[in-house]
Structure formats: C-alpha cells, structure tokens
Design a protein around this nucleic acid. Structure first.
Length: 564
RNA sequence: GCGCCCGUGGCUCAACGGAUAGAGCAUCGGACUUCUAAUCCGAGGGUUGCAGGUUCGAUUCCUGCCGGGCGCACCA
C-alpha cells in the first residue's frame, strides 16, 4: 500500500512540500532547455481561481529563448506536464504558468505532515552556527516599559524560530549596573527616604521622579528604620545604590518571567569593569593608536572607520562611558565563541550603531559578527491621547501593568504581530476590552473548535489512529486543498523569519490558517456518521491543523486552549 | 542641516518586483432544531503622501519633494 511506504520513508526523508517540489521540477525543466543558470524566478500562490501554484519563470527566460514570455511559458509548461504530480497547467496573463497538482500529491503531503508532527523543524542544518541574541538590556533604573516588552517578545520568538531552524541560539540580558544612572537612582531613593522621615531635601532634575521609588523608600523604612539618616555619606551612598539595584534587578527578572521570557544568561556591566576587562580593551585601543586625549577625556577615533565624529570613552572625571563598556562587552561576546550576535535595540539607540561598528573593526572582529535589529517605538493610546514614554519623568505604563490589563497571551501576540519597523500604536482601551477584537482569540478559537470536534469524534467512535488506511484523496474541495497547501508552507515561513527577523510572519500565517479552517468548518461537516470514510480523512486534516496551531502559538509563547 | 525608519479605505495593520492591493475594527444586510455564532456569507468604502525614473509589470527598487518618529552627548 502506497501510504505504508510513505510512512516508512517519511522517517528518513524530508517531508514532501509541494512548493519546494515544484521549484525542483522547474529547475529540472530548465536543465533540459540548457537554462539552468537562470535565477530569480519564483513559485507562488496565485490569486483565487488560477490554480494551486504559479510561476513567473517565463519572464526570466523569454529573452534567452528568443520568444515572448507567453510562448516560453507554453514550452516550459509542456515540460512540467510530464511530471506525475502535475495534473494540469494553464498559461495566463502575460506569461504566468499556473499549475494544478494531482489529488495524489495533496494526500501525500497531508499524510506526511500528519506523520511528522515537527516537519517544520530542521534536525541537521548544513552548517552549525553559534548565535547570541541580546535583548531587554537597559539601565535597571525603573520597571520595564512596554517598549522593552516589544523587544523581549521579538527576541524570545526569534530565538525559538532560529532553534527550530537548527541553529544554536543563546538569549542574554545585559545589565547596565555600573554607570552614573545607577548612582542617581540610589540618590533618588535616598532623598525619598529622607523626605519620608521628615527631612527637608528635594530631588533635582537629574534624579528619577517615579512614584515607584517612593514605594521602595517606604518599604526600606520598614526594613531598616531610620538607621541611614545619620551614617557617613560614602557608606550611605553605596548602601542605597546596592539596595536599589538589587531590588530593580529582581523586579525586572520577575517581569520577564511573567512575560514568559527566559534567558540563558544575564551579564553584568559591573563585573566587566571590576575584572579589568574594560581597562584591557582601552589599552588595546591605545596601543593601536586609536584613542586621543582631549579636554581631559579619552576619545575613540570613530572617524578612522566610519563617517561619524569621535566619541568619548573615558570622561574627564575618570568614569567610563556606556560606549566604552559596551565595546568590552562585545569583545567578551566574541571571545566566548559566538559566530554572530544579534542585538535588539530601540530606535533611540540608532546613533550607537556606527560607533560600535567602528570599534569592532578596530578590534579586528569580522564584520558579520555584530548585527543590530532596531525596532521602532511603541506608542500608547489612552482615550484620544497618545502617551509618550519617559522613564526619567516617571510617566509610563509599565510592562507589568500592560500584562495585568490585557493578559500575557494578548501582550505577546500583539507585540509579535507588528513589523518591528512600524511605529505601532497600542490602544490601551481597545486592548482592555477583552473581546473578539483581539486576533489572538481568533487563532485560539480555531484550536479550541478542533478540540471540540475531536471530543465529538471520540463519542462517535471516529479516530485517526489507523491513519494508514484512511483515504486522504477524498479531500478534494477547494477549502481542503487550500488548507493542505497552507500547512505545507509553514517551513518556508520560518525560514524567512530566520532570515529577515520579521516574526510577524508567524502571526500572519496563523491567522490565515485559522481563517481557512473557519471557512472550511462552516462549509463542511467533519464528523458525519453517514460518511465514515470522509470523516476519518477530515479528522486527519484537522489533526494536522490543530497541531500546527498549537505549535505555532507555542513558538509565540501563547497558549492554545482546548476550550474557550 | 545630515543620517536611519515610517506614510496603504474612517481606525489599526497585511501584501516573496507580479495577475482584480488584502484582513480586522467601525457602518449596513444576511446565516445557529446540525462538530462552540469569540464563527461564516454579502455590501459600501482606495489615484498605496506627491512628482518623476528603471521594466513586460512598481505599494515594493532608484531620484527629488511633502508629512511624522528617532538619532547626530563627557545619556544610555
């Protein structure tokens, strides 16, 4: 039996993906025409009514074949027709070849995806790469804002996708726990502490104004009372800095936990300074003659490598700039053996990129090593008002508040669904209304619906456990063929995400899959006692869809409820 | 001023250089004695910011404008 053979083979072979298969078929056809070097053509899904797949290859070969695209399409189409999986072709428009695949081709594809649940994973990649993605790295001076949520979700999902594509990926958060901002943060709490205990001291403009620091000071008073009202300034400063820092880091880790983001490592800027790693890098740069001393500060010659002005590494008061420690940090990453790193930064870090690139060049690190993915800001809308974020002024919605209001599923899904380049507008009131407006429900509902079908199937005694004897070629309707085509396209979606980092392709895919399913569901009955053969085949189809919805949502870190 | 990103129905967003630019929300009208109506079907709504260029073909690529965001720190 044919399906038994597939099942045996499918353990060893890559799953038969219809589009990939056609690409090979076209390439073979070109070979017979001595046109193998032609590149750039595509196989894609045509508009409704033009067949299963289409290719624009004729436009690319017409010149070489010295005929019109239309004529070339006919010649190539004729060759494709000899393929047993190709049932019909037609040449339309200015020269598109539209292809209809045989029913056999569809049932084979479905059968194989049914028997290889993780057919979209790559087990053995061509080249094993060691990659690090760094995100959600900030001054631990205040709770995470929704902007950090956006990059955390993107980074987390991207790591999952790259792992599914067979790459080794580590997720890291960098803690900027050494700089002057931390000092200011400590002072801010110290002042709040004194104010609460009746002293007349005021915050300055450079201090952090957020109310969360008042709360922290209140809690501190409960813990230590008035002990720090009359200690030495030096001791007090250090105490407040360390206390606040520890509290902030705990809070931030808790937020990430809540968001479902786990890190493989946390890296402290302070350890970099204290270990002398920063001094070493500075010396290296100095030995290479790439630093200058001017106005009491130490400058790095960015202009020797990039079209940018030189930047300060060591301030005139002797402290390191963020730029300085970041160079040491990236050298450290390189020395840890990563093939390349991807830093996910907000748009406000744009200016940091050229100078970092210059520093990498100065240290002889290969150009492909340092990669930055920039995402645009998240704007929040409340009522008719756009709320701008500012950590310093203490005006923001925190990530925790957002998760509290809309839930973790919606938070993650929402951040995943927008292209990182868009200045997304997060409508708080809209998100607050827990209703169908949220696309996450649409996808989850499709999953729950299938689960419900299965409960019904069990009651009626229909199951898919004897998959080999099921006749999947019964699934001939447009809706069913479209679903199968959709299913086989998922590996390509992930491949593209791993390439261009646009995780929104996954939500787009899931919404499309869910939509195809809902349409199918409304038109066809899955469980039908009068048509047991058909029911079995449809249960198989639904099983693949259910797995894919669940696995796709899992990739996003969103739950897939069995009932809603 | 210079650099990066973005301008797509009323709103939020899609669209691998392809065919008739798609969804959702909002508006209007239909579909539950049948596996969950958080669904489906239909209608209206667009010169894809403007002007050129490249080509068989441009929302997509190039150039110039216009509008918005961000950056051009001894902040991070």
């Amino acid at each position: 039996m044919r399906q038994k053979l597939w099942k045996r083979l499918s353990r060893f072979l890559e799953v038969y993906l219809m589009k990939k298969y056609l690409e090979t078929a076209i390439s073979n056809a070109l070979k017979t025409l001595d046109l193998l070097d032609i590149k750039g053509y595509k196989v894609e899904v045509p508009p409704e009514g033009f067949g299963d797949y289409s290719t624009n290859v004729a436009f690319f070969v017409s010149k070489r074949m010295r005929m019109s695209p239309l004529k070339a399409a006919e010649v190539i189409g004729e060759k494709l027709l000899s393929d047993p999986r190709v049932e019909r072709i037609s040449v339309d428009g200015p020269g598109f070849i539209n292809i209809i695949l045989s029913q056999e081709a569809f049932s084979e594809a479905l059968f194989q995806t049914l028997n290889n649940r993780y057919y979209w994973r790559i087990k053995r990649p061509a080249a094993q790469k060691n990659i690090q993605i760094e995100f959600a790295s900030v001054n631990p001076t205040g709770p995470f804002t929704v902007g950090h949520g956006r990059q955390a979700v993107i980074g987390d999902i991207l790591a999952e996708v790259m792992r599914a594509r067979g790459l080794h990926v580590e997720k890291e958060m960098y803690l900027n726990d050494a700089g002057r901002q931390i000092q200011l943060l400590g002072e801010s709490v110290w002042i709040r502490y004194q104010q609460l205990l009746g002293k007349k001291v005021e915050l300055e403009d450079t201090h952090y104004q957020g109310g969360y620091l008042v709360e922290m000071a209140e809690e501190l008073i409960k813990e230590v009372g008035e002990t720090y009202l009359d200690r030495s300034e030096k001791e007090t400063r250090r105490f407040f800095r360390d206390y606040v820092l520890d509290r902030m880091v705990q809070t931030m880790k808790a937020s990430m936990d809540k968001l479902g983001v786990s890190f493989d490592s946390f890296f402290s800027e302070r350890t970099l300074v204290e270990s002398g790693a920063v001094d070493r890098v500075l010396k290296t740069l100095r030995d290479k003659g790439l630093v200058t001393d001017r106005d009491g500060a130490v400058w790095f010659k960015v202009s020797a490598f990039e079209d940018e002005s030189d930047k300060v590494l060591v301030r005139s008061d002797g402290t390191f700039t963020y730029f300085m420690t970041d160079i040491a940090y990236h050298l450290n990453k390189f020395e840890r053996g990563f093939d390349y790193v991807i830093d996910i930064w907000g748009a406000d870090h744009l200016g940091h990129i050229p100078r970092m690139r210059a520093a990498m060049k100065a240290l002889g690190i290969p150009e492909s090593f340092f990669n930055v993915m920039v995402h645009q800001y998240v704007n929040l809308k409340k009522g008719n008002e756009i709320v701008k974020m500012s950590t310093r002024r203490g005006e923001f919605y925190t990530l925790d508040e957002l998760m509290e209001i809309v839930g973790v599923d919606a938070t993650r899904y929402f951040f995943a669904m927008f292209d990182p380049d868009t200045h997304m507008l997060f409508d708080i009131d809209l998100a607050r209304t827990k209703s169908a407006e949220n696309p996450v429900f649409y996808v989850q509902y499709a999953h729950a619906r299938i689960c419900s079908i299965f409960r019904n199937a069990v009651e009626k005694g229909i199951c898919h456990s004897t998959a080999e004897d099921v006749d999947y070629s019964l699934l001939q309707s447009d809706e069913e063929r479209k679903l199968i085509r959709e299913i086989t396209s998922f590996p390509e979606v992930l491949e593209r995400v791993a390439g261009d980092y646009k995780v929104s392709r996954i939500t787009n895919f899931l919404e499309e899959l869910a939509s195809c399913f809902h349409i199918f569901y409304n038109k066809h009955k899955v469980i039908d006692r009068n048509h047991m053969k058909m029911s079995e085949a449809r249960v198989g189809l639904c099983m693949v869809i259910k797995n894919l919805l669940a696995d796709g949502l899992a990739l996003l870190g969103v739950s897939a409820p069995e009932s809603m």
